[in-house]
Write a protein that binds this DNA or RNA. Structure first.
Lengths: 231, 231
DNA sequence: GATTAAAAGTGTCACTGAGACACAATATTA
DNA sequence: TAATATTGTGTCTCAGTGACACTTTTAATC
């Protein structure tokens, strides 16, 4: 019941990424202005074809393409989902593996500012933008996944620089889920997660000096057993 | 920065499924004995190439392949993950989109019994089986996902026939997560989820007659805000 | 028919972690 | 020095799970 490879038209396979960051209290997505067909002139997600000579896995394809656009490696990367279909690409049946990535805005700001091919687009502006393929839908799904994960894990730290304060993390979380959370709840989770350590340094923040935290070496994302509700 | 399709060797793209069921208090996976190279004679996951003339999406590829082996459509189907790499298939760089599916054992028992090409293999026997590709790893990941989802949703109902009792659901859940749960907790969740309705019929079960339940029409899986801990 | 065993189903208290919010501590600024 | 802003703590409430005793309803056995 196995077939010879050549019996079939192999579908078009690409790797795209939804790279999020939080900047100016807004969730942003990295979009690239397309200069080739199809959808030339429209905005699309950064991505492209696997280069089997350079990529050991599709993860590397995603990272390579992101590096081309941002000059940096995202702090978090996971698979979102595969989108496939006969009609999503005019060239024929296509399959896109979409990754979902996070990075601190500071890591890439210089590069992005000088290249006008790639831009951070506010999540709310996506709706009214000329977007290629089904990338609008893909971004929506990625946003939902990010919001969901934010309720039971600490992934939003990957939108922050190495050292960060509770206040910054709180702000990023609130931006992502679009609701306010209790500072106290966040602190409890920071302690319970045991994935952060305090840095012997404090930073000014408009009031009392804030304690700096960093992610411990080699720790994985902790999943909590309850969701935040976000009032 | 876009490339012509023909510049690249398109990687080998296949769709496989990890179809689970619970039978005799054991979690089982549908495995197929391979009759073609590579790995002829070994056991592998049901799957194959996309047929762009018959499949509108990769979901249909997965369903079509499962139907070939079991004669039935799984009650639950979702994407698990893509597995890719230069060395997982001797034919070259390969990409496999793996689905994760559930079905009631009763739906397919007759078919499976008559075909010796496809078999339900107990999850604990996989380790010592001659398995093709990286399918052992894939099954392990699928099992973890199933266990995780079982803690915060009711997906295990899709391992049961249309009408089922609380006792049956409890047993299936316990088999999946490998721990006992409180009957009371399960009943509370059944009520809170609001995705089941009682059937005006009871069934004998060795003691007091048990209330039959069924999944309401058109409802989606409900995700709870807390995990079960399973003592 | 009475007795026992087995599973279904209920009542309720304890425990855990999030929500809410008051309050204390420490910085800046006027 | 006082006002203000933000950090950080103390603690009560609330919701949902865990635990477990207890009741109900059936089949099986005597």
């Amino acid at each position: 019941m196995e077939y010879d490879i050549n019996d079939f038209k192999n579908p078009l396979f690409t790797v795209d990424s939804v790279l999020f960051t939080v900047k100016d209290e807004q969730l942003k997505v990295l979009m690239v202005k397309r200069s080739n067909e199809p959808f030339s002139g429209r905005w699309g997600l950064p991505g492209g074809f696997v280069d089997v000579d350079r990529d050991d896995t599709t993860d590397m394809t995603a990272l390579r393409k992101l590096k081309e656009k941002t000059g940096a490696k995202p702090q978090y990367l996971e698979q979102l989902q595969v989108f496939s279909g006969i009609s999503r690409d005019p060239r024929g049946f296509s399959v896109t593996l979409v990754y979902f990535a996070l990075i601190a805005e500071q890591e890439v700001s210089s590069r992005i500012d000088t290249v006008d091919e790639a831009q951070w687009i506010g999540i709310n502006q996506i709706e009214s933008l000329a977007v290629a393929f089904d990338h609008k839908l893909i971004i929506k799904q990625a946003q939902e996944r990010l919001q969901q994960k934010t309720l039971y894990s600490m992934i939003p730290v990957y939108c922050l620089p190495e050292y960060f304060t509770v206040g910054q993390l709180k702000s990023v979380i609130e931006t992502i889920i679009g609701k306010t959370i209790q500072r106290k709840s966040l602190i409890r989770r920071i302690e319970a997660a045991d994935m952060f350590e305090t840095v012997d340094e404090k930073v000014k923040s408009g009031g009392r000096l804030a304690q700096l935290y960093k992610v411990k070496e080699g720790v994985d994302i902790v999943n909590f057993e309850r969701n935040l509700s976000g009032a």
